[in-house]
Design a protein around this nucleic acid. Structure first.
Length: 402
RNA sequence: GGGGAGGUUCCAGAGCGGUCAAAUGGAACGGGCUGUAAACCCGUUGGCGUUGCCUUCGGUGGUUCAAAUCCAUCCCUCCCCA
């Protein structure tokens, strides 16, 4: 692949690439360049949203470039104010350490460890003395700092901005100087920080880094950005089953966005699918199945993906009861005259948290016993072996007498 | 330091003496429709072997036949001015 083609591939699906020509020049000159990606070891669980940037880094690695995974163990003590309207609470050293470890493990599901250099910014930041900090700060002005959306908003709505928070972008910029980064990549929410890195490198007599921003991925609800706290995320350590199921439940308008940002399927092939969909040749469900399979295969391999696909078809399309299901053993001491009251069983099997909830489920027609809908809340069930209790459309449990 | 607002059920947020297990919205759950979805429609959302009873509206005490609602006090949050 020639250099120009490399740049085109890198550029795919990015939001910003500043400056494209500079990127080309550096690749031509060096062959292999240093791509910086900084992570905040605050929440260790990586989800598909984070994977967008990681996959782009992987793309760099596949082209023979080096990724510098920078763990912001020092900056975590400040907390990135990006997109926040509050100060973050600083983490303890132990938490940071533990998070960094988990992060690395998860990131290497995507990145190639051989082509990744892991560094910690405490290495140089903890050695900064006050005069060096002052020098760093003198290269930037308050007014420019306040241009940043989140600071601006906080400033005008009178939310407190810790003075130390101004140092977050400065420290991040200093990291680029320390690393002599050729490229820095991040989500679009990082644009300000990334640009500042460019400017500070110039102030320190270095060639300014190329910056790349990647889109922020919407979560499974299709509206909000994917995040753990909103509960609309798909974690990369989730089981193949969860992952497949969640992917199948994303809204249709997200299918191609996910294809572009989460798979390495070529743009050309994605466009073919889009076309086939709009012409009605392909059903959206089929394309979504493809997507789910792609992603599950990436993380767990083809056999897992095939298994989940089959299971899914059986469960949802054919409405069959899955072959393997969790079971619950009823202790004989719970039985009266060899029978158990349905309400009690629902509570024991954790299908309902209270008797009232169990009654509600039955009243609403959500409970089935061996496939037959239960209507009577007073029902007493006799348990010989292997009955199946179903609540809602998807939860099944085999009930066994102990 | 001075002034003001407020803490209600999962969340947001009404209620301001009885008709309140508490409006409305979000979320969740169940049913329907479907492609498994989304959207949409209907229903449910304190507990109890449940036509009735019991416990909830920041904590504690009080007024009253009756308190989420009134009073006192304590705790906590937020805003404005300095």
């Amino acid at each position: 692949m020639n250099f120009r083609e490399q740049v085109c591939l890198i550029k795919e699906n990015t939001v910003d690439l500043i400056q494209e020509e500079e990127l080309l020049r550096r690749i031509e000159k060096k062959g292999s360049i240093r791509v910086k990606f900084g992570v905040d070891p605050t929440s260790p669980d990586i989800h598909l949203g984070h994977s967008v940037v990681l996959l782009k880094l992987r793309c760099f690695q596949d082209l023979g470039h080096k990724v510098v995974l920078l763990i912001g163990d020092f900056t975590a003590k400040v907390g990135d104010p990006s997109g926040r309207n509050k100060m973050r609470k600083p983490l303890s050293t132990e938490e940071i350490k533990a998070n960094a470890k988990t992060y690395k493990e998860q990131a290497f599901k995507i990145l190639s460890p051989e082509k990744t250099e892991v560094l910690y910014n405490s290495t140089w930041l903890s050695k900064m003395n006050f005069s060096r900090v002052l020098k760093l700060a003198s290269h930037y002005t308050v007014a420019r700092m306040l241009e940043r959306d989140d600071f601006n908003e906080r400033y005008h709505s009178k939310y407190p901005i810790g003075l130390h928070e101004f140092f977050y972008p400065l420290m991040q910029a200093y990291d680029s100087i320390a690393l002599k980064a050729d490229v820095e990549i991040g989500g679009t929410d990082q644009k300000f920080n990334l640009l500042l890195g460019r400017q500070m490198q110039k102030s320190y007599g270095q060639a300014p880094q190329v910056i790349i921003t990647m889109p922020i991925l919407e979560g499974t609800d299709g509206v909000e950005k994917m995040s753990k706290s909103l509960g609309n995320y798909i974690g990369i350590t989730e089981s193949p089953r969860e992952m497949y199921g969640k992917l199948m439940s994303i809204p249709d308008n997200l299918i191609f966005r996910y294809f572009r940002l989460l798979t390495s399927l070529s743009e050309e092939k994605i466009q073919k699918k889009e076309e086939a969909l709009s012409k009605g040749i392909l059903h959206p469900k089929e394309i979504k199945k493809d997507l789910a399979k792609w992603i599950v295969t990436f993380y767990y391999g083809a056999s897992s993906a095939n298994m989940e696909e089959k299971r899914f078809e059986n469960l949802f399309k054919k409405r069959k009861i899955p072959e393997e299901l969790p079971s619950y053993c009823v202790h004989s001491c719970e039985l009266k005259n060899d029978k158990i009251w349905i309400i009690k069983l629902l509570k024991l099997a954790h299908f309902a948290r209270s008797g009232s909830e169990a009654r509600r489920l039955i009243a609403q027609g959500g409970v089935k016993w061996d496939g037959k809908r239960i209507k009577d809340v007073e029902l007493e069930l006799s348990l010989d072996n292997g009955h199946i209790l179903q609540v809602g459309k998807r939860s099944f449990m085999k009930i066994i007498k102990l």
